[in-house]
């Protein structure tokens, strides 16, 4: 498959996943605010800035907004086209990538993504957002989930499909880790917190809800929400489809399907790094994570995810085509070609 096409498929699903995660995060936190009383500017800042940070755009937000109100944050993260990670930007980017590989994706997928794009740019989107933010976010989430379903159910599971899977899971792993990191300032640098206030409990529940993990969490840990359990669940759970471990394992699986190399070996840096991270998450306990400090641990995970993404790019997309090995390969191809034409031209 064309390298450029693989790249577009990868980014298309990354951006869709990104839009969905931002929608989820904002939805939950807007609702959470309803439970608080007497919010001054300082408290609002403390609440919203970490959320802005999950998309890595704190600096430009602070520059543009004096007060971190819900409306300002939401506008910045939903409709601001200048913010490359806003929902609208993510959807535009996803659609732009889809347009470049229009011949590779199914009609159904294209139409749904295009519908979402047209909706986001229409006045109805703002109207819906004003009337009921939850309805609005449900639109985004629903559309993203529909796209995942369509991709799974209508797209042939070929190399390109695995690239889009890789994009989805690397993005989801990263976003889950960032959402988990939201409340790190309430935790000690190392070790577990001594006590958990009612306010903390609400906020940690919001973290779970932001990952659509509330129901799954309850079924395993019961209704008591302790950061230790939340972190264990979102980082190390084997079966929850948004946990970092689950995503990294899926990413690893996708990489293997792309190259056809079994998971006992590796054929490029992306596979090596991803296999390593998967093993680490598999053979690690939450006590060890807190001992190292949750925030630092998550930082490391994010760096590793970035490295995997970069290695993937180098292995498949931005290949240097003028190394000796490559030259040799090209020559071989050409020789075969010439051999074929020689036969083709021979007349008896």
């Amino acid at each position: 498959m064309l390298s450029r096409v693989a790249n577009s498929l990868y980014w298309m699903s990354r951006y869709i996943e990104r839009a969905e995660n931002v929608a989820r995060l904002l939805d939950v936190n807007l609702q959470l605010l309803l439970d608080f009383r007497s919010l001054d500017d300082e408290k609002l800042r403390a609440h919203w800035l970490p959320i802005v940070q999950t998309t890595g755009d704190q600096e430009s937000f602070v520059k543009q907004h004096q007060r971190a109100t819900a409306a300002a944050v939401a506008d910045f993260m939903v409709f601001r086209q200048e913010n490359p990670n806003s929902i609208v930007s993510s959807i535009c980017s996803a659609r732009e990538n889809a347009r470049m590989v229009r011949d590779q994706i199914t009609q159904e997928t294209w139409e749904e993504l295009n519908r979402l794009y047209l909706f986001m740019l229409s006045p109805q989107a703002r109207q819906m957002w004003t009337d009921s933010p939850t309805d609005f976010f449900n639109q985004i989430k629903g559309s993203s989930l529909q796209l995942i379903g369509l991709s799974d159910a209508t797209h042939i599971h070929n190399e390109g499909w695995w690239f889009s899977e890789a994009g989805r899971f690397i993005e989801r792993a990263d976003k889950t880790s960032r959402i988990l990191d939201l409340r790190y300032h309430t935790l000690p640098t190392r070790g577990l917190p001594k006590s958990v206030s009612q306010m903390d409990t609400l906020e940690w529940s919001a973290v779970l809800r932001s990952c659509s993990g509330w129901d799954a969490f309850k079924s395993i840990y019961g209704a008591e929400v302790h950061p230790r359990h939340v972190a264990e669940f979102l980082l190390l759970n084997e079966d929850f489809p948004r946990s970092v471990r689950f995503c990294v394992e899926r990413l690893n699986d996708s990489l293997r399907r792309i190259s056809g190399v079994s998971d006992r070996r590796f054929s490029n840096d992306a596979e090596k790094l991803c296999g390593r991270l998967a093993a680490e998450l598999q053979f690690c306990t939450i006590e060890e994570v807190f001992e190292a400090g949750l925030h630092d641990y998550i930082d490391q995970v994010q760096i590793k995810l970035n490295n995997i993404g970069e290695a993937l790019f180098n292995a498949y997309i931005f290949k240097a085509f003028d190394t000796d090995g490559e030259e040799h390969f090209v020559q071989q191809e050409e020789q075969q070609q010439q051999f074929k034409s020689a036969i083709g031209n021979r007349k008896f």
Binding site: M1, L2, S3, R4, A6, E159, F163, I258, Y316, I317, K319, F321, E326, F329, V330, Q331, E333, E334, Q337
Partner: peptide
Amino acid sequence: RDDHVFMRTTKGLRP
């Protein structure tokens, strides 16, 4: 390359 056209694919160059 050597007067042949190739496309860049994830599996290397293809004529």
